[in-house]
């Protein structure tokens, strides 16, 4: 059983774009560790020959015809955006390219 450290929690918070204070990390670490400890029963199972279930029912090939439709929601959405300019969503400067 991998035990969860403060650093793990800080790393995960960063990945999830959450800014935690030291106190919050102190609170979350044992809580998350307890939940993961509870999951140790699952982690311990020997399931090499069991296929995973990603979806309860075996539907396949659910497809849509390639026919365009105008949703007509642009102005409504832009009007309640946190910031908009020239028909676009405005954001503060973006540092760095997409990962």
């Amino acid at each position: 059983m991998a035990s969860l450290s403060r650093d793990d929690v800080a790393h995960v918070a960063r990945l999830a774009r959450l800014q935690l204070t030291d106190e919050q990390i102190d609170t979350f670490t044992p809580q998350l560790a307890a939940i993961l400890e509870h999951a140790a029963d699952v982690e311990a199972l020997e399931l090499d020959d069991v296929p995973p279930t990603a979806h309860p029912f075996p539907l396949t090939n659910v497809l849509r015809p390639d026919e365009p439709r105008d949703a007509g929601i642009r102005d409504e959405v832009l009007a309640q955006a946190p910031a908009a300019e020239d028909g676009m969503f405005r954001v503060p400067p973006v540092l760095g390219e997409a990962p």
Partner: peptide, 12 residues
Amino acid sequence: AFYGKAQKVRTL
């Protein structure tokens, strides 16, 4: 260990 295993438990 976690998500993958949990999906297999679903099968069980």
